[in-house]
Each structure stands twice: as C-alpha cells, then as structure tokens.
Design a protein around this nucleic acid. Structure first.
Lengths: 147, 147
DNA sequence: CTTGACCCTGTATCTTACTACAGGGACTAA
DNA sequence: TTAGTCCCTGTAGTAAGATACAGGGTCAAG
C-alpha cells in the first residue's frame, strides 16, 4: 500500500485520455464497469491510473466484439484475487474457443476478399468471383463477376 | 435463365432453416437486405434458394462483426454485375484491412487467454497473470494472480 | 365447417450502448 | 463579480437490430 502522489483526472480529462464521451464514464459507473471514483470536497469525481487502465481494457475488448456484460464478468472475475482458480480457467477457456472460431471465420473472409483484390485488378475478365463464392457459402463455382 | 423446379419456403420455414425469427425476415426485407420475395395468390411470401444463401451470408457476416449496413453495401455492390470493377476492389481492400486488424487483435487476446489457460492449470502459484497483463495493456509485469 | 397453425399489415416495444437535456453548483480568468 | 467552462443529479432520447402485438385472412386436417 504505498502512497505515492497518484495522478488524478477529472471526468472530462479521463474521457479525453481514453477517447470516450464524458457521459460514458457516468454510464459505465452506473453499469458497474468501473468503480465509483473518489470525490473532491465539492463532489467532483477524481479518477486514478487504475481507472485509465480499466477503461483501456474495456475499449480494447469492445473492439474485439465483447459486450459490456461480457467485459463486466471478466473484470469481476479477475479483479478478485479470491476468485477460485477453476472459474477463471473455465471462463478463459470458453472465451478462447469463441475467439478461435472468430479468427477462423475472419480468415475465411480474409482469404475470399484477398482473392478478390488480387483477381479483380481492374483489367481483363475474371475466372471466378470470391465474393460471390463467399456469399454462396464457399461453393467454388466459376460465376461471372463485375463486367 | 433455366426454369427448374425451384424449392420454395414459407416465411417460417425459411426462418427456421437459417435460424432467425420469422419476423426478422420481414425486417430484413424492409431494410433492403433481402429482395421482396414472390407472393402466392393469397399474398404469402414464397422464398427460394437464393434467399436461403443470402441469409446465410448475412448471418455469417454479422458473426464477424459487420453491421447490417455494411452487409447491405457489399451485397448491393456484388449483386450488380454492372458495378465498376474499381469500386468493388476498393471496397474489398478496405474491408480486408479491417478484417486483418481484427485478426491481429483477436490473436493478441487469444495468446493472452491461452497463456492463462496453460499457466492457471489449478495447481501451484503463478508467475504472472496474462489476463492482468492484457488488462494493463500488454505490460508484462509479474503480478499476483488468483491465489 | 370449424379449429389451429400459419400468413398478412402496421405499429409498438425491447435491449444495448450511448448521448443529450434540465436545473443547478463550483472553479478560473479578466 | 461576472462570464465561461467545467461539474453534479436525474431523466429522456437515440440508433441498431430485432421482437411482439393487434386485428384480421388462409388453409389443411379431422
């Protein structure tokens, strides 16, 4: 419990630092995604380093397609040192499967679009259309494609 | 323009086949994501194979984090054989960048969670906590973790 | 020839994740 | 001391993506 001079932010300052709206911080607080911050004498919220980190985690996780509820659960699980080991492990394993499936799906789409970009280079007729293939569920039939 | 006996579905049947609610089909139709289907004499919607495929594409794309608007745009682009080549290519290229970034982010999370699963195997103390690392923005400091 | 499952239209409601007031207090700079 | 810009609380509104409901027509089985 060392007590070095922790930097603090006001609401708008923290919001700016993590690139969210100031109101969003109040919203996250209501939803239990961030802790209730300390207050100044006049009742202003005063945020610390930990709030900054937590918010950055929230935004990164959202970017990966997790809902605020998902994020809340993983934060609750991991913030508590007393959480049983197995619970954290099971949660992480379940998430891992979801993530791995997403990666597989994205790679399929990447490959389909990558082919399109390579083949649709703007000249000559096409042999097949990877987008059309993808739309039709990865059946590789040589359709006509974009003139 | 061959006219083989195309299978048709009613609204509920198609909805079941692609695992969405029946009302969702009407919603997608309103939003222009699927074409207005043919109607029976009494006004019932009659869907065909192409509707099935399109809906499967929509659901896959949604699973990859694309909005209905994104999906509508790519469908509109690709359905029209007359779409200029360059437009399709540019769109695909932009999408490709987004997809590749998502894959990178997901892999970072996969790796963090994968480490957690391997290290938090339920026995002994931990050297570090990959979830905590991820929360703190990939700084690898050896924190305590879940007892 | 009725019952029950489906269909039609139009509109209303719900969830998630914000975003925007309204009405008032606090702090800073001139 | 008076703007101007922040802050407070509570509540209302928005956009996306469905999902439900009201009031009625259709159709196949028994």
């Amino acid at each position: 419990m060392k007590e070095k001079t922790k930097p603090t932010w006001t609401r708008a300052a923290l919001a700016k630092a993590v690139d969210v709206g100031a109101e969003t911080l109040r919203f996250y607080e209501q939803k239990g995604l961030i802790e209730e911050p300390k207050r100044s004498a006049s009742g202003y919220r005063l945020y610390g380093e930990n709030d900054l980190e937590r918010l950055q985690f929230i935004r990164r996780s959202q970017g990966l397609g997790f809902s605020l509820l998902d994020i809340k659960q993983i934060l609750e699980l991991t913030k508590n040192i007393r959480t049983p080991r197995k619970k954290v492990r099971d949660f992480a394993e379940a998430r891992l499967l979801v993530i791995q499936q997403k990666i597989r799906d994205l790679r399929a789409m990447e490959s389909a679009l990558g082919n399109l970009v390579r083949q649709c280079d703007g000249k000559g007729p096409l042999k097949g259309c990877p987008i059309a293939d993808f739309i039709e569920g990865h059946n590789s039939n040589g359709n006509q494609c974009h003139e």
